[in-house]
Design a binder for these strands. Structure first.
Length: 842
RNA sequence: GCCGGGGUGGCGGAAUGGUAGACGCCUGGGACUUAAAAUCCCAUGAGCCGAGUGGCUCGUGAGGGUUCGAUUCCCUCCCCCGGCACCA
């Protein structure tokens, strides 16, 4: 907090805030008739997590930027619905509740009240509180559970044993999205691999659609890029390798089928199901020891050790489908079980990881794609495109003294050649990489040894959490009927109050210890059944909250179809970039799935998404440990919500955030004080003065364009610039000021309302139409023409509009500075931009 | 490593091919005041020349290029922020 004394108060922000907030509430100014609104505009922002610390300045930044949009579009004649709610389930509140020894339900209740009454309601935002939702409310999570059962009944939810990320401190599983480089994003400790039965949602079924729709949705590019990376589409082929002396085949996915002629060995992931069978008895002990070692390794150790390759030969061989070579099968942890088929063909000449491995274990390296002359293939793999070489069947004998551009270690490969492994002849040499990929895939496909394949990096959404504070998975397990969704009339499956809700290390959630909870009846046969004791990821709570807002009061239905059809998709959604691969992707998936089930009219939830930036302080992220956290309450107390809002928006472009400083906020406050002081001097009924009219229309133009483009910082600069001019010109016209106050209203709603009243105009400024600018006022009679000599500024000429080039040149030549710069040389060339610039080249 | 975003005065930032530094902060000077704060006015990129109105040179991470003219477009490189990453 700044320790400078308060400025002398010209404008009593606290009194005005109380006055107008109570008036707005009494008049229900911001409540919308959802059923009958003629021009719906659903203005959504990411609902906060009601922490004990209170509202973060980042929330204020996000909400203010969103509220400005809401207010702007309202003045543009839309019926803006701007709801607010609380995302109150989850591990954070649960952990905090445990540290202070209070039950999370009570804690949340208090935090929510504090957020709503003491903080959110002071922001000057146009929240419609009559549609508040809170995810921990049983009336809400009843429908979260219902959403789950819809997915379950559609076959989109399933339970399977899977190796999952277990954080020893969270004592629960983490989604891939919640780990960073093998560390828990919350605790920074290495996650363990655990094999647990988990509920998953089949987001991977939607991978291609989630990707395709990014082409047309109006979202910040940064989010779309992050989602594309996360979905991770790869085009390639599945190649089938025969196993020596066995019936089965080993399938591998590759993006480089053109390099199959250079596949000199094969690698299985340590968890690969065929590994135990394939391993020969003489290798078994060694391989098993390796597998044990590799699976015990944490994700982090594995990633850190990614330079050095480890692995073991299994003793088994398979057959390269292109060359017929008998190639060894290895096991190594650089192959991941969770991607593709958990097995790869290794092409050391053209894949750096395979190259490293081949070097470590002295395996053959065969070049099958040409590389640039200055590239040294003995040092690294050539992973770029080129022309195929050594790609014929039967394979041409490779020179035993290899050297560059052939075989890269001295080794006779002929023993690898298995007689009669392949039929016919084929030659793919000299093809460019993209063509070689197609031709070789086609050739193998014709023999039933390959098929084109698209692979995604995206994994299914792991929904189970082994914690207490979440909505229980609404499923019972019956010995006879299997897993059964709890029917709607039994929802919600209430989260029972428990004294001891501490998570433990067993992998079982606290609800497993509840004596009564798991006892249930099978909805299908009526027999005894066991209730699921996992709770659901709170990203499910927040994946559908926007559907609930309009129908928030309804206890008979999750969302009203008519209201939903009217208000979906959300017109504008504003939030942080950090949710790109979590919340925003889950929400898109869920909307798509519900759309397919006929439950939603749209398949994309948000027509527009805008990603705002981050507020830092002193160039660093705000954190308690740095002691640089801004407490919004203190600033609102001292400067008022309008100043705080405008200041946050003035810091920098909204999509980039800004650096908070205690000094600069005073400048914004001064600006608002000047507005107030000026209006306190009274206004006249005179029409605006001519020069001022031009400035006014220029301001309308700029503020309008800037608000629509989220350039709040320059919109505010334009308002300041106008005020400076209006004060110089002693502009006191009510008409001019009514325009200015309307332009200010979305950013500073309280002082704008006060100013509107001072102008003697009819309440409320927030119901007024947005001003339009008239281009005719922006035209001027005179033009300022910049004169350059050889591109350097030498003079400025104020001339009548559309003065001819000849006249301009004449005037320019008569100018001292111009003449001096030309140094007596004749003009060689003259460039003239009418009414703007004249450049004389000598 | 790959994919985004960025690098401009003492500071936050503005200008996306045509007057670099809008707007604001800081700082200096002045007015008002017994005094200070607040407020108002003026100055404020750097260097140089000039008694002076003023003028010259340099300047947008570095280097090259395109152009009459480049913060803006192109190429190479450096640094910062974010995402992805042993994903075959």
């Amino acid at each position: 907090m700044p320790d400078r004394p308060s400025p002398r108060v010209a404008f009593d922000h606290a009194a005005a805030a109380d006055k107008w907030r109570s008036r707005w509430e009494a008049d229900r100014l911001y409540e919308v008739d959802l059923a009958n609104a003629p021009r719906p505009f659903y203005n959504l922002m990411m609902f906060p997590y009601p922490s004990a610390e209170g509202l973060h300045v980042g929330n204020v930044f996000a909400f203010t930027g969103a509220d400005i949009q809401g207010r702007y579009w309202r003045m543009r004649g839309h019926d803006v619905f701007e709801p607010m709610g609380f995302d109150a389930f989850g591990i954070h509140s649960e952990n905090y509740a445990m540290t202070i020894g209070e039950h999370p339900a009570r804690l949340i209740e208090r935090n929510v009240a504090n957020f709503r009454e003491n903080q959110l309601k002071r922001l000057g935002a146009m929240f419609d509180w009559s549609h508040e939702v809170s995810t921990t409310d049983p009336a809400y999570y009843k429908w979260t559970q219902w959403v789950f059962t819809q997915l379950f009944n559609a076959g989109l939810a399933y339970k399977k044993a899977a190796r999952v990320n277990w954080c020893p401190l969270c004592k629960t599983v983490l989604a891939d999205e919640q780990t960073e480089g093998g560390l828990c994003e919350r605790h920074g400790v290495p996650v363990e691999g655990r094999n647990l039965e988990q509920w998953f949602l089949k987001i991977t079924d939607f991978a291609q659609r989630l990707l395709d729709n990014l082409e047309w949705i109006n979202w910040s590019e940064v989010i779309k890029t992050a989602q594309r990376n996360w979905i991770g589409r790869s085009e390639g082929a599945v190649l089938r390798f025969g196993i020596e002396d066995r019936e089965e085949t080993l399938d591998v996915f590759t993006t480089r089928p053109d390099t199959v002629f250079g596949a000199t060995y094969m690698v299985l992931a340590p968890e690969h199901p065929l590994l135990p069978e394939l391993t020969t008895s003489d290798r078994r002990a060694e391989v098993e020891a390796y597998v044990t070692w590799a699976t015990a390794r944490t994700e982090q150790e594995r990633i850190e050790g990614s330079g050095e390759k480890t692995g073991k030969f299994t003793g088994a061989y398979c057959l390269n489908p292109a060359t017929g070579w008998r190639i060894p099968i290895w096991v190594a942890d650089y192959v991941l079980i969770g991607y593709g088929s958990g097995a790869i063909m290794a092409v050391p000449a053209h894949d750096q990881r395979d190259f490293d491995f081949a070097k470590t274990f002295d395996l053959p390296i065969v070049q099958v794609v040409t590389c640039p002359d200055d590239f040294d293939l003995t040092e690294a793999a050539w992973t770029g495109d080129g022309l195929s070489m050594n790609c014929s069947y039967p394979p041409a004998p490779l020179p035993s003294e290899g050297g560059k551009n052939q075989q890269l270690n001295t080794r006779d490969l002929s023993p690898l050649l298995k007689e009669g492994g392949q039929g016919g002849r084929a030659d793919f040499n000299g093809l460019e990489t993209p063509k070689a990929k197609r031709r070789i895939t086609d050739w193998l496909a014709a023999q039933g040894k390959a098929e084109p394949r698209v692979q995604y990096r995206l994994r299914d959404w792991c929904l189970s959490r082994q914690r207490y504070w979440g909505p229980p998975v609404p499923v019972v397990h019956c010995e006879r009927c299997g897993y059964q969704a709890v029917p709607l009339d039994e929802l919600p499956v209430m989260l029972p109050e428990m004294e001891d809700y501490q998570p433990d290390d067993s992998g079982l959630p606290p609800l497993a210890r509840h004596p009564e909870f798991s006892r249930a009846r099978c909805p299908a046969c009526g027999g005894e059944a066991r209730r699921e004791v996992d709770v659901m990821d709170n990203f499910l709570d927040s994946a559908w909250y926007f559907l609930r807002y309009p129908s928030s009061g309804r206890d008979d239905i999750a969302w009203d179809p008519e209201l939903t059809a009217k208000w979906m998709p959300v017109s504008m959604y504003i939030g942080g970039k950090e949710h790109a691969c979590l919340h925003l992707l889950y929400t898109r998936f869920l909307t798509m799935a519900l759309h397919d089930l006929g439950l939603l009219p749209c398949e994309e939830p948000f027509e527009r998404f805008f990603a705002h930036g981050v507020i830092v302080r002193g160039g660093a992220k705000m954190s308690k440990s740095r002691g640089n956290v801004v407490n919004p309450d203190e600033y609102i107390d001292k400067y008022g919500a309008d100043t705080f809002r405008a200041y946050l928006m003035f810091l920098g472009p909204y999509d980039q955030g800004g650096d908070f400083s205690d000094e600069a906020i005073a400048g914004v406050r001064r600006f608002l004080d000047r507005v107030y002081t000026h209006l306190s001097g009274g206004v006249t009924d005179d029409p605006p003065k001519a020069p001022c009219l031009r400035d006014l229309h220029a301001a309308i133009k700029q503020v309008t364009e800037d608000l629509e483009a989220f350039r709040y910082n320059t919109a505010i600069a334009a308002l300041m610039a106008y005020l400076n001019r209006a004060r110089e010109d002693h502009e006191r016209s009510r008409e001019a000021w009514s325009v200015f106050v309307r332009l200010l209203a979305p950013i500073c709603p309280i002082i704008a309302e006060e100013a509107w009243e001072m102008l003697g105009l009819k309440y409320s400024v927030h119901d007024q139409p947005w001003p339009h600018y008239d281009p005719k006022f922006l035209e001027t009679e005179d033009a300022l023409v910049v004169v350059q000599v050889n591109g350097k500024l030498r003079a400025r000429l104020t001339v009548p509009k559309d003065t001819s080039q000849e006249t301009l040149v004449e005037m320019a030549l008569a100018d001292d500075r111009v003449a001096r710069a030309m140094d007596g040389k004749p003009p060689k060339k003259v460039i003239c931009v009418p009414n703007k610039l004249l450049n004389i080249v000598v």
